[in-house]
Design a protein around this nucleic acid. Structure first.
Lengths: 113, 113
DNA sequence: CGCATAATTAACACATTCGTTAAGTGAGGA
DNA sequence: TCCTCACTTAACGAATGTGTTAATTATGCG
C-alpha cells in the first residue's frame, strides 16, 4: 500500500470484513467482540482489521474498562468522497445531477463554500 | 484482495499511480504511453496497473492500430460512490446536505427512483 | 522482407497482507 | 491473590502486489 492518506483509506475499504465493520459502526459504537460476532475469523484477525481501519483514520477507539469501544471517524471517508467529485459527472449519479441542479439555480457569482 | 467487485474497485483506487491515471482519463481517452509519461516506472509496470484498472471495471481498452486507447468506465466508480451513501450523513458533505435538501422539498410520498 | 514502435508477457525479487495458534496485558470480580 | 474476560502482540506461513529487466507479440512503413 502507498502510504498517503487516500491510499490508506481505499486500501482499508478494499476488504469486505472491514466494510462490514464500518456498516455496523454506522449504527453506533461497538466493542471489538460485537464487531467480531458476524465474522468467522479469529479475534486476532479482527483486531488487525481494526488496526487497519484506525490507522486509515476511519475509526477511533476509546477505553471503557475492559472494552475498547470503536466509533466511526468521518474525516477519512469524507476525503475519499471528495476524491470522487471530478468523476461524478461521468457516472451521472443522482447526487451529481442534484449538484448540477443546484449550481444551475444558484447565483452565478456565488462562491463555493 | 477479496474478489467481489467493490473490493476490486477500492483496491484499484488504493494506488496513487492508478488514481493519477484515472485523473488523466477524466480529460479523455489516452494511450498507454500517454498514461505512462508522467510516471517514473517501467512500461510493464504501467501495463499491469492498467490491467488492474480494467479488471476492476474502472477503464476499458480499445484497439487503434498499434495503440490501445483507454477510457474511463463509469459503472465501477458509481458503485463505489453508491457504497458511500449511508455514511454521508456522518461526514456532512455538501452532497449529503444537498440530498437532504432535495428529500425535504420532494413530495413526502415520492419513491426513490 | 526487415526494422521500428506500442504494448504485453515471462521470470524473478521483495514487501505487504491476511489468516492461523500461542502467549501476553490489563481491568474486574470472587 | 487468583481467575476470568476482553483484547492485543508475537511468530509464522501462504497468497498477493509491485517493481525490475529481458523476451515476445502485433502493427505499420520503407
Amino acid at each position: 500500500m502507498a502510504d498517503d492518506a487516500l491510499s490508506g483509506t481505499f486500501a482499508a475499504l478494499a476488504d469486505p470484513t472491514r466494510r462490514a465493520m464500518l456498516a455496523r459502526l454506522v449504527e453506533g459504537e461497538a466493542t471489538v467482540t460485537e464487531l467480531a460476532a458476524p465474522h468467522d475469523i479469529s479475534l486476532p484477525a479482527i483486531s488487525r482489521h481494526l488496526k487497519v481501519l484506525e490507522h486509515a483514520g476511519l475509526i477511533s477507539r476509546g477505553r471503557d474498562a475492559r472494552w475498547r469501544p470503536c466509533r466511526l471517524e468521518p474525516a477519512a471517508l469524507a476525503d475519499a468522497d471528495a476524491w470522487m467529485e471530478p468523476y461524478r459527472r461521468f457516472f451521472g449519479s443522482r447526487l451529481a445531477r442534484l449538484d448540477a441542479q443546484l449550481r444551475a439555480s444558484a447565483s452565478p457569482t456565488a462562491k463555493e463554500q
